[in-house]
Every structure is written in structure tokens, then in C-alpha cells.
Nucleic acid binder design. Structure first.
Lengths: 187, 187
DNA sequence: ACCTGAACACCGTTCAAGT
DNA sequence: ACCTGAACACCGTTCAAGT
């Protein structure tokens, strides 16, 4: 049959295998040769489905933004403020759970692709901000919230902020709440 | 003489040339072969002074942290709060002015080296926070301030936050002030 | 001590040729 | 249409040999 020639949904397998390598060893470990090898296919085969290495990594990054959006929309809480804080915690948790994927998603070199992929993920955050009573313009609140969550996430996966295992969520909650209470009209 | 053999302070020249390539084209464009070529030296020569490519990039990143620290300590203002906000603006300005260098400095892969280089740069921020009257623990305030500045910087150089040319500093000031006023005991 | 030249294994990408 | 095999230019790193 076609067992060694046609491979079932190679594009999908390439993305899956690449994502696994990224998550385990980081995007620097991704090599077209290696991915092809692990898919049991020739080095030239991936080029039928992706323009090159960067395009393949771009597809994996896009999958990452989908996963992030899902994690953010799943965040819940009793009040609007608590829901916003929960989303912030989910944001940082996502980065902590998938550090290499997260870094790939926000690599500055992929500017163009990202400015398209980012906003959808941001929408969940913007929606939550809208429900919180504000004393600053909405866009300032959105940027500030996203900025803080993103900065804490980045510094953390970079090893610049060290959290002990126990107080992670609580500490995060305190930091995010400090911000929200600064934004809200009455503390 | 020794014109084509000994080169004046090769280690220094390697760092300088590497930093220039990083700033102009990003760290992905750095190649031992290219750096050696631009220094007029054989491909093997850099290995006498740096363990490898990562070590060379690490030295450039360390230089970057020095520059960042200087930019932060130069920030000034009339009140403690204004000084802190000015440092935050300086932080984001540094990232905007040296996007590729900044990204290299905070690459997650270089974890170990950074957790040593980061804190000194952070100290300037921590000192400024100490002068501001707080209603939250100092370490929470430091992390929150650094986190917000870092997140805005990262999102901005990644093209996720777009600032028009005019309102940059003012907008930043508004965002940082919103945070500080949330931290301070009386607004 | 510092540098060169040559070598090795590896990678990204292309392309004619196969099915 | 999808894949292979072979090729090209390039890179990181090492090492014996030169001064």
C-alpha cells in the first residue's frame, strides 16, 4: 500500500511533533532535519507544506495562541474583579506551564504574524476589564492589565522572579489585585 | 610587525562587533564565522576568548544590563513617585531603543546567567520603590512595578502594543501612574 | 600565549527525478 | 499532488600546526 509513501496528514504531524520538541527543549532545538526524521519522512518533505522553518514555528505559535485564549476564557470568579484577577493568574500559569511555547509565541522577530495572532487572545482580557468599574480609560486599563500579567510571566519563566512553590497563586493574586485596586474608583 | 597577527584587544572588538550585529539585525544574525570575518580574524580565533557562541552572546547581554542599569539610575523627578514613574518610562524607552539587545538579555534559555545579571539592574528600581509610601509589602510593590514595566516593554517591541509617535511617554506615564496610585495608601 | 588552516558533523533550502 | 535523493552553501566546534 502507501505506508511508506503517503503519510496520514503530514502537515498535522509536523506541527504536533514540532510543538512537542518546542515544549520539551525549546524552539532552538527545532531542526527541519530532526522533525522530518521523527516523522519518518525525507528532509525535503516538510517544504511541501511549510515555506520553511520559520513558517513551521509560526504555525506552532498560532496553535499556542489558541490554547492561551482557551485558558483565559476558562478563568472564572464571583465578581468581575475576581474574574479579571483569575484571568491574570491563568495567563501567568499558562506561561509557567509552557515556557518554551510561550516564548516562541512572543518572539519579537515574528512581529507581523503576532500582531495578528495576539489581539484575539487579548480579547478575553479586554472583555473582563470592561465589566470592572474603572477610574481610568478602558484602553489604559487593558494595556496595564495585560502588561503586568505579561511582564510577570516573562520575568518568571526567565528565572528573574523566583516564587516558592507554595505562595505562587496567592502572591500573583496580591500583585494583580494591587493593580486592579489602583484602577478601580473605590478601593 | 604584528599587524596581521596580533589584533589589538580582540576580546573587546568581538563584543563590540557582536553587539552591533545584535542591535542592527538581532541575535539570530550573529554567527561566529561572520563576527570573525568582520574582525579580520580566522573562524577559530574567537574560541580563544569565548567558550562558544552562547558565551559571546552572554557577554553582550551582560553589557546590555550595565547600560540598562545606567539608564535607570539616570531617571529623575520631583517626588519619589515621579522618580519611580520616570524609571519605568526609562525602562520601556531602553527596550524600545534597543529591542534586539533587550530581547537577548531576557531570553529564557539563558536563565542561569541572567538571574545573576538581572538583580543589579533591578536594584535601581527597588531603591526608588522604597521611597514611595506603600500600602502593600515592599517586595510586592517591586515585583509589580518591574512586572508592568517589563510587560509593556516586551509587548511593545513585539509589536503587540502600538503607540503612536506622539503619545508614547504620556501614555506610559498614565499606565505606570495608575499602578503606583493603586499601591500608594492615599491617592 | 595567540592565531591559522583544514577538517568534521550538521543544518536550511533547492531541484530534478520518481510514483 | 506528494515525496525522495542528491547537492550546495553555510555554520559551530575542534585540533594540529605555526609564530
Amino acid at each position: 500500500m502507501t505506508e511508506h509513501y503517503h503519510h496520514a496528514d503530514l502537515p498535522r504531524r509536523l506541527r504536533t511533533v514540532t510543538r512537542a520538541v518546542v515544549e520539551e527543549e525549546g524552539s532552538a532545538a527545532v531542526t527541519i532535519a530532526r522533525i522530518a526524521r521523527e516523522c519518518g519522512v525525507s528532509v525535503a518533505a516538510p517544504y511541501r507544506h511549510f515555506a520553511g522553518k520559520e513558517a513551521l514555528l509560526g504555525a506552532v505559535a498560532a496553535d499556542g495562541f489558541d490554547a492561551l485564549r482557551e485558558a483565559l476564557t476558562a478563568a472564572d470568579g464571583a465578581t468581575p474583579t475576581e474574574r479579571l484577577v483569575a484571568a491574570g493568574v491563568a495567563y501567568v500559569d499558562f506561561a509557567t506551564t509552557h515556557p518554551h511555547l510561550f516564548e516562541l509565541m512572543f518572539r519579537a522577530e515574528r512581529r507581523e504574524r503576532q500582531s495578528a495572532a495576539g489581539p484575539p487572545a487579548l480579547e478575553a482580557l479586554a472583555t473582563l476589564v470592561n465589566d470592572v468599574p474603572l477610574r481610568v480609560p478602558t484602553d489604559v486599563a487593558v494595556r496595564t492589565t495585560w502588561g503586568l500579567a505579561h511582564g510577570l510571566a516573562m520575568l518568571r519563566i526567565g528565572g528573574m522572579l523566583t516564587f516558592t512553590r507554595e505562595d505562587t497563586a496567592e502572591r500573583l493574586r496580591a500583585e494583580l489585585t494591587a493593580l486592579v485596586e489602583g484602577i478601580a474608583p473605590d478601593r
